[in-house]
Design a protein around this nucleic acid. Structure first.
Lengths: 334, 334
DNA sequence: GATGGTGATGTAATCGATTACATAAGCGAG
DNA sequence: CTCGCTTATGTAATCGATTACATCACCATC
């Protein structure tokens, strides 16, 4: 394996000059530049990036921590991150925690170990103090989620208002017994969507029935099973607001499995607007999040942190919108 | 940021001893070990892995090149890779090519650059000679795909026989005008599935109608659009075999959009058995691939290559199976 | 008590690039 | 012609860990 020394020797220059040619910096005459390039070509030389990393103390790599890469929502956000990273010459290291909060904290360590220049969390179940301590010293961005009361750069939508919007839509359609399939309660985003749900009920003076709130885990299976449970109640809900589309699809399947029709017997609203939301039948009324854009903005924000550029707006709230389709009836179909 | 020197100074030992404690190698008395550990604790020291990488010339990182991370098939394979990697202390770098073959070749360069210890390709559109040249020098594994005539370690299923199996199922149900929605023809896997389709037709002496083979790109949209085209023929097909589930779902939607019923008017068979295949209605008859296991085996194979262990079986063909559901009628529902 | 072996620790080279600093050459202005 | 500035190039330190090799102390053996 040829090293920079071999190139230098062959081109009859010093390693410094070779490096200058490689990095396209400083002053090199066209003639020596050509000589160096020829040597590189002849030796089939590829610079060993580990030497560069150590010397420059940066790797042009960012770590993205995701709770579950098979979740289409996250993979779409990741795509946005990748797109911006690639454009700026950064690489993306993937950390799939498989929903294990302890793994999340472990991944934090790659920062002081200098393995990556910064990181983006698509999930935030890390202790606030720890996260704040790290975020002070290293570039960290939260995407999708935020940490209550912590001043950490964040890109997300307003989960409270969008959940309220979704619930209100059901209320407007005449529903009063509205169930909520929430995400895991140790995730802020889940709590926010629940809060928005409560706000909508309160605003329309609908009494809260605690049994109508069921905690799921964002999987199809949990949506399915919890809905079966809801339908077994003496007074089952006439509408279900699920905290994501996969659970909503699970809900629809469960309702049908019990012989019900959607939206005629039970209306369903989802969240995220993944591709399947419009393909599935009935197509899902849902809250559309700008997934790709969340990823893009998060990466752009991270880049600015890495480059030490002063970031004026550290918290970014992107617009979402209610997409009305067939799963809740009443509205027009899109 | 504390370095190993600081720890050495504080513990009153040499850096060599600190390193011995860190790596848990060589002979260190329990007493000095404790002293070193205390110093590490006190300084909140984290070893800078870049120094280690350079000296050891390995990064315990592997690169996975995937054509599209939002494709549930690939993300499931990736999960299998991740699981094994994590267990062995390896990290996973993600390279999403967004279906750009040129990017694929570019990613090959990270190997001589020493940035990763090995790589797994979930897609193989790289020139054979180039790939072979690299695979001779560095640990490379192909998952899902293989390269014709090249002796590169590979984990996959037998796409020809499984496509034949799927097509034969349709023939057994009485279909004679069977269309095939193929994947991109520059991918071997697509060509293999097409070949299996042809083999089944030939075996049952069904004449091939070239117009019934339409080249898609594995996306829902292409499945939808190509099916609309097929349905516009004077003699439209009575069955469609799609090269993956997403195109199959697109086909179903297109058929319905034209007022047809599945499977009554047109039968549909997919490929992969992604989660949505069983959720979607009608549930899809499809070829189930062991996605997670493909990832696992590929990573295990790669690990052995990295560690220089002689690999006896370089080509691994995993079993697939035909899952019969509702989208093609006739069979029992699962 | 000399010899050799073992275990604990230190010294310093090493990995491969980058870059601060030194040096030399070339050129224009006075 | 000389001074000073610019440009091109070289020398060598540096990044932080790992590790080959050296050293020393201690103990057992004959």
């Amino acid at each position: 394996m040829a090293s920079i020394k071999d190139v230098a020797k062959r081109a009859n220059v010093s390693t410094a000059t070779v490096s200058r040619v490689l990095r396209n910096t400083g002053n090199v005459t066209e003639e020596t530049r050509q000589r160096v390039l020829e040597a590189i070509e002849a030796l089939n030389y590829q610079p060993n990036v580990l030497g560069r990393y150590l010397r420059r103390m940066e790797t042009e790599t960012v770590l993205v921590v995701v709770p579950d890469i098979t979740n289409p929502f996250f993979s779409k956000v990741l795509r946005g991150i990748e797109a911006v990273a690639l454009k700026h010459g950064y690489q993306v290291l993937l950390g799939d925690t498989q929903n294990d909060a302890r793994l999340e904290e472990q991944y934090l360590n790659v920062l002081p170990q200098r393995q990556v220049d910064g990181m983006i969390f698509l999930t935030a179940r890390i202790r606030k103090e720890l996260m704040e301590e790290m975020a002070e010293q290293f570039p960290i961005v939260l995407a999708c989620e935020y940490l209550e009361g912590a001043d950490i750069p964040t890109v997300s939508i307003d989960n409270i208002s969008s959940a309220r919007k979704a619930t209100e839509h059901l209320i407007r359609l005449g529903h009063r017994r509205i169930a909520h399939l929430s995400g895991p309660m140790n995730i802020i985003l889940s709590r926010d969507r629940l809060r928005g749900y409560y706000q909508a009920l309160a605003q329309h003076e609908i009494e809260v029935d605690a049994a109508l709130v069921q905690e799921g885990d964002f999987t199809y299976e949990s949506g399915y099973n919890l809905t079966l449970k809801l339908l077994a109640f003496e007074k089952p809900p006439t509408a279900i607001f699920a905290a994501n589309d996969e659970m909503a699809i699970g809900a629809v399947k469960a309702i049908r499995h019990r012989g019900g029709r959607v939206p005629d017997d039970v209306a369903v609203v989802g969240f995220d607007d993944i591709q399947m939301a419009s393909i599935f039948e009935p197509s899902l009324t849902t809250i559309a999040q700008p997934m790709f854009e969340i990823g893009q903005k998060a990466m752009e924000l991270l880049l600015r942190l890495i480059e030490g550029i002063d970031v004026e707006r550290r918290q970014l709230v992107l617009p979402d919108r209610l997409v009305i389709r067939d799963s809740c009836g009443g509205g027009r179909s899109v």
